[in-house]
Amino acid sequence: MGPQAARLLAALLVLGLCALAMAQKPSPCRCSRIEPNERDNCGFPGITGDQCFASGCCFNSSIRGVPWCFTPLPKQELEECVMEVSDRKNCGYPGISPEECASRKCCFSDDITQVPWCFFPISVEDCHY
């Protein structure tokens, strides 16, 4: 192997390590609040929990027939606000502002149409890996 190939290999190794260091294990609520039949595969056959978490995905091998390494729910400002859209319980009215929603001590997310944008939070006590 020539000096250029060795430098290229070293650079690729450094980039790979940087990518692994930047990825982090998702919060428990972003993983445990996904229904097993709603999981989007994020890994490959035989992936380990450590490999899955290193890529920023969730891992749970307790249920057969569904992906064990899967995409987490979207990150929210508060963990209490992390939930599947189908679990949102309306806490406002059409056109409510984020400020009015917050004054009701509720969560606000207007990323998806046709669902409540202002919704009640859920306790994080049930969130676990």
Rank of each mutant, 00 (worst) to 15 (best):
D87W: 05
C18I: 12
G92D: 10
N41E: 11
C81N: 00
S97C: 02
C42K: 01
C127G: 10
L12S: 11
R64G: 12
E84S: 03
C31A: 02
N37Y: 05
R88L: 07
K75T: 14
M1T: 09
P28F: 04
Q4S: 14
T48M: 00
A5M: 09
F108K: 06
P121F: 03
K75H: 15
F44T: 11
R39P: 01
C107A: 13
C57A: 15
Y93Q: 11
A5T: 11
F53D: 05
K89R: 14
M1F: 06
E80S: 12
S27C: 07
P98K: 07
P36A: 01
F53R: 08
C58R: 05
I112M: 11
L78A: 07
S109F: 12
S86W: 08
C69M: 05
S55L: 11
I96E: 07
A23F: 06
C127W: 09
A6S: 15
C106L: 12
L13V: 14
T48Y: 01
D50F: 06
E77K: 13
R7M: 15
E38I: 00
S86M: 07
R88N: 10
M1G: 13
C91Y: 11
P67R: 00
P28Q: 08
C107W: 10
M1R: 08
P74A: 06
A21Q: 02
R104E: 12
D50C: 00
F70V: 08
L8V: 15
A23L: 00
F120I: 08
A21N: 01
Q51N: 09
A23D: 06
S97K: 05
T113W: 04
A10C: 13
Q76E: 14
G49K: 03
D111Y: 09
T113P: 14
K75W: 13
M83F: 01
D126C: 12
F108D: 08
P116L: 04
Q76P: 07
I63W: 04
T71W: 01
C69I: 02
A19C: 11
E35V: 02
A23V: 00
P3E: 06
E125Y: 14
S103W: 07
F44Q: 11
L9I: 13
C118L: 05
N60S: 15
C57T: 04
R39Y: 00
P3Y: 02
E84I: 01
P116V: 10
I34A: 01
I112F: 08
I63D: 07
R64D: 13
C107K: 09
T48I: 06
E84F: 01
K25R: 13
N41H: 04
V85F: 03
N37E: 11
L12N: 10
A21S: 10
L12I: 10
P74D: 03
I122H: 08
S123V: 09
I112Q: 12
M1N: 04
L12V: 12
S97F: 04
W117G: 07
K25P: 05
C42H: 06
W68N: 03
L12A: 14
E35N: 11
D87Y: 12
Q114A: 09
E79A: 09
S109H: 14
G16L: 02
P28L: 04
C31F: 06
V115S: 05
R33Q: 05
P45E: 02
L17N: 05
Q76F: 06
E79L: 03
W68E: 04
P28D: 08
G56E: 03
D110Y: 07
I34D: 01
C106Y: 12
N41T: 05
C52E: 02
C107I: 07
N60G: 13
